[in-house]
Design a protein around this nucleic acid. Structure first.
Lengths: 348, 348
DNA sequence: TTGTACGCGTTATCAC
DNA sequence: GTGATAACGCGTACAA
């Protein structure tokens, strides 16, 4: 008895159930069209044979895989966690599954992922790292553009790709206003990496908001979104000739790093310096002090993104070039009114 | 001109290059066997046609997909981020790609994932949520077991599955010893969810270590790994008739939540209460106070896990039932010697 | 309602 | 070194 190795095939199920192979196929895709009796026999047969459809064969035939590719710059960034949950849930409801590519913001790597998934291996694509794989104008890029693609959180440089996210510029302005309302006039900024779209928008918005309220933006330190870079940036700011009374870090991790570095340097927050973050990750609420920040609707963003790709996959033309979701101020203990405690005593 | 829609096929490349279909196939898998000249012509032809191999067809034929399935309970848990990076890197080096399933610790969901990926759609599987899909003894489970599977971080109930991770029991003991060495005698524990393997091992180890050093384990509060549950657990502990002088939380998030709740209740850490966490996630280092914790080699764990599945996939029989990696004490400011500051003054 | 016949794009086998 | 041919497992006209 040589026996076969792999799992059972439709053909075997058909033989066992005493029907044609076609009928079995239909039993899995169009059960309504079959008589209850044959349906039952097929169900029994597949159960006995532990049959599962071969997805490779199915996607080869249908030219679609039931998979969504998600490209993100850093799976370790806690900002993405809830976003991914949203995407995941939406994908599952649509009967699709998630392929996740961590590009590390490396264009070559992103290309490798996209390339491998080019030929119908993937039904759609969600770009969270602000970059479209392949250089602009290249044939590969052009080919990719024909697939359902949406940009999430960060805009990409191709206007034909729908965007899902918040208005980062408006959010940056809002932070400046928030700080101005507390009486602050000398502001500082901890920005993300220079080449990044989010960096630009949040920084521009912040500068704009500061101007509108007659505040001085004394300077900008550059980080890379990481906790460590926030610490370094804070140290930098403390060395400026004119020290700000409030700083805005372009994400929560850098803000948390900054707060830690400030505490280590004996600077009280918010007594001497107010700090605002961005994103409202879980850890923002339990720092000491808890972080004032801008909340992005992360889960909803994920859901909206799948919704958008799914619409394009299924041919429902959304015609919606962008889906802008609302952000939200979250006031906590890391900000305070100017002069509330300019001594080292701080305020708890 | 009706024109075809999909991407180019091997057949078309072959025609254009003036060679047989077979030769093109070889050009992609066994380039060494071809003359430099034909190789060149094929390369040119595929470039002009923007050819990419169809992965569905390839996996149908080769009965392998180049994909690894990773099942984890919560993609939002920062512990997994570095682990995933390790897996990702290893998979990529092996020319494979990652399929990630967030099960939310829901068995049904895990089954759905595993089921959909059953029939050769996936080359191997890494289980990080301590559960093997499908009930024990079921045919589906049996079939799954024939595929290359390894358990990461948490053991699963099937002894035939290789394990990669640290010795959680020993780590729990080590925490007790650490605390005892600081002079603490009255200990408390914040455990993970009851049904969890990691919970059990860390708790047993902690209790064991406490006994060995003659410490009293005054009680255990139960959390669910989340920050919020750590806060609740701390509140619970403060209501115990006999209050411990040191507590061990089974992960960093609960520890951070606990520290925050203690601070809110006016309890100084480590002045009145020392706190130890587990995992050494990034945020552990920048809390106030920074968290004493047990570091797991997360990246290395991920690498080791891919290495193990890859070995099984490629038939290299590892014969290694378990791969135990070393953990490490990380002493920071959330722990202090007993009585160092039993007043509210604390120690910064 | 059910069955027949063919093709999806690739790799493996064997011959030249 | 290269080429013809047969699967791989499934979906879908089309016919019955």
């Amino acid at each position: 008895m040589r026996g076969k190795v792999g799992p059972a095939t439709m053909r075997e199920v058909a033989e066992r159930a005493g029907v044609a192979l076609t009928t079995v196929s239909r039993a899995f895709s169009n059960p309504d069209k079959l008589s209850p009796d044959t349906l039952r026999r097929i169900a029994d047969a597949s159960a006995e044979l532990q049959y599962t459809v071969n997805l490779s064969a199915r996607s080869l035939r249908k030219r679609s895989s039931g998979m969504l590719l998600v490209l993100l710059p850093d799976i370790g960034n806690p900002f993405f966690s809830l976003v991914l949950k949203g995407i995941e849930e939406g994908a599952r409801e649509g009967g699709r599954v998630l392929l996740i590519g961590d590009t590390g913001s490396d264009a070559t790597l992103a290309d490798a992922y996209a390339g491998q998934l080019d030929a119908g291996t993937v039904d759609g694509m969600i770009l969270i790292d602000g970059r479209v794989p392949f250089p602009h104008g290249s044939p590969a890029r052009a080919r990719l553009m024909r697939a359902p693609v949406v940009a999430l959180s960060e805009h990409v440089d191709d206007p034909s790709i729908p965007f899902v996210g918040i208005d980062n510029r408006a959010a940056g302005r809002d932070v400046a206003h928030l700080l101005a309302d507390l009486g602050h006039r000398r502001l500082g900024h901890i920005a993300g990496p220079a080449a990044n779209g989010l960096t630009t928008l949040r920084e521009q918005g912040f500068a704009e908001g500061a101007r509108e309220r007659g505040c001085d933006l004394l300077g900008t330190a550059t980080g890379d979104w990481s906790i460590g870079s926030g610490q370094a940036a804070a140290a930098d700011i403390l060395s400026w000739p004119h020290r700000p009374t409030a700083i805005f870090a372009a994400n929560d991790e850098m803000a948390i790093g900054a707060v830690h570095a400030l505490a280590a340097a004996g600077v009280s927050v918010p007594g001497e310096l107010s700090v605002v973050g961005f994103d409202d990750i879980d850890f923002a609420a339990v720092g000491s002090p808890a972080l004032t920040t801008i909340r992005q609707p992360r889960f909803a963003m994920g859901r909206a993104a799948v919704e958008a790709v799914t619409a394009r996959i299924e041919g429902r033309t959304t015609a919606e070039p962008a889906r802008i979701l609302p952000f939200e101020r979250v006031m906590r203990a890391s900000t305070g009114p100017l002069g509330s405690g300019q001594t080292a005593a701080g305020r708890g």
